[in-house]
Nucleic acid binder design. Structure first.
Lengths: 200, 200, 200, 200
DNA sequence: AGTTAAGCGAGACGGTACGTCCGGTCTTACC
DNA sequence: GGTAAGACCGGACGTACCGTCTCGCTTAACT
């Protein structure tokens, strides 16, 4: 795969890297993904085009790095108060706030869209942004399962997706608002089906 | 909004319209959405570029029309055998087959992606492709609700999304295969939460 | 040559013909010859494009007709006071005024230029505009020749061109002003060579 | 005036410059000026369109540079045998040969025509092609004037134009052939008026 | 007076070229 | 050797006109 002699990362300019990220994020917010250009990023960052091409294969890759850079390490806390429904609602409400934040919209939408048409990018997007987000829910549900709040036969990954996918789909396709009420309804409906079967 | 004097639709060339649709669909399958160009469509269709620009604002709009044209009226049948789980699995398996069909992939992915970055297009995409697909499930669930299979307090729209969104999200983000087994699990898990509450 | 069945001139719309001439002349003055378009003429004239294409082969042809229409019959008077130099200066001064008139500049320049690249148009331009103008001088010189003011061996056509060509060349190429002083000098210098040789 | 940041001429590709000139000259000969296109030149030259637009404002400007490049330095020799008439006839005959050469026709006509409608281009055309040609005659005549062959009161510039303008006008407007006989007649007639006045 | 066919205004059409923008590569000079 | 700068080839953009072609409509000329 690596045909051209790989660049020497140790000599890389940190200043340029940061400037490129800043430029990419601010530009995608201003002009949208479609009108985001490598030349535009280079110009805004005060950087030569080649410096971008040397380190990234496409504007989507730049944006992905810029964006993950910005959000890395956010998945630290997931509360476990013992009340699964309450915990899920708490986290999902926070996520709703995030998704409703204008700053996130443009780059996140752009990456989701770019991923749809580019399998390789999609994989990295999923791995670095989507999966860590899902893992939070999966882990909390697994704990609940061990605590007996959720039936042992339940596939918690599918369960997590039952909460997260309707939520993110609504947002991505703009089919509805992400309100706290919606979030609560969604969590309640999903959990209703996960309770251990009446052992009687 | 419409600033330029609108073209006279009654004089429109049906032959050109069809040729453009055919060209757009075949090209998007061959080269992918990003490399799909208006010039390419015009050339393949044997049509002047202006004829495309006269009737559509973007390649995404062309593709949406081409695609809906192609699939219109497909949502005729939704079985009601009295067994909700069986019916949903049946339809969702068919939908899985459709989504796994190469022919659908390119244009559908392209439209979903284009919609993410273009609210207006998104609205038309949702209205003409997404909603009719969802309606099938909502209607069947409403019937089940009236038959007492589903609790009366259930929001069937959210319930339908609990089935459909994880499914389409998997496909769009390529986070998993759309197998019959997955489909069955998903339906079962959702329905588990919808059953009427144990009578008091 | 006449391949398409010729249009029936008897049914021709005089109103449209005039409107086209007016539009062509006013437009060439406003936007220049290069940006003069058939569509622009048609639109300004309130006329269908086909009506222009039916009667003229090119915008240059339209302009030529429009222009000659405008100036036809102007070559009526050529004075003969018996003093050749005075008469030539008188006419040439008037011509200078004409050439210095802004209204003439654009269409006349345009036609001269178009003629340079189009032999057929050139022929009509010469025949309908250039030659009649030259004839005035040739005729007056021939009269002078018969009166003995000019030597009998002189080719009056060439003599006329010796006056007119430097004059029009200056104007066309913008190599100098067309002043009365220049005109007078030119006439005097040419006539100096035409006088009958000292018979002695 | 120079609004866009000017390109860096020191980095200019000499190879491209030459290729553009070759392409422009060969194409104008093949298809004529009206059908000469920037795209055509770029394609024939194996050059991006932008490379043309970066350095020239119009096809006429390209052609002018291409043409002057081709002919620069040709005005070296002007004979002075002591016989003015003979010398002028000699040079003008050579010029007639040149003007009758097909290779010259297209670009020269094109430039003359383009100049008629574009004052700025005209100025450069005159300065770089027309004036050097005229200067040859003016200089020779001035020498003759100093030698007493021409009257001291004669404006040699006007005299030169009396020879050259009828000549080039004939060619440009196609009103007559440029034969040796015509050339000789013209020179003789002009010189007849320039001789010093009978002393006394 | 009624019929008919041509000219007409309008403008959609298949094309070509415009002049601009940007992609990705390459070169130059600097650090 | 990475970098800022930017010229280069290529190719698509969206626009403007070309010249051709219908489409109804007017409007003369010929039954």
């Amino acid at each position: 795969m690596a045909n051209k002699t790989a660049p020497d990362a140790s000599r890389r300019s940190e200043r340029s890297r940061r400037a490129i990220f800043d430029a990419a994020l601010s530009l995608v917010g201003e002009v949208g993904y479609d009108k985001l250009t490598i030349e535009g990023i280079a110009s805004r960052a005060g950087v030569g085009k080649q410096t971008i091409y040397r380190w990234w294969p496409s504007k989507a890759a730049v944006l992905l790095d810029a964006f993950t850079q910005d959000v890395e390490g956010y998945e630290a806390g997931l509360p476990d108060t013992g009340d699964l429904a309450a915990d899920l609602k708490f986290v999902l409400r926070a996520t709703a706030d995030e998704f409703n934040d204008e700053k996130w919209q443009a780059p996140y939408r752009a990456l989701a869209a770019a991923g749809a048409n580019d399998a390789e990018l999609s994989a990295r997007f999923v791995e670095r942004l989507l999966e860590p987000g899902i893992a939070v829910y999966v882990n909390r549900m697994r704990a609940a399962q061990e605590a007996g709040e959720i039936g042992p036969e339940v596939d918690v990954r599918v369960a997590a997706e039952m909460v997260l996918s309707p939520f993110s789909q609504r947002w991505l396709m703009r089919t509805g608002e992400l309100t706290y009420a919606y979030v609560d309804t969604l969590v309640d409906m999903v959990l209703a089906g996960l309770r251990p079967r009446a052992s009687a």
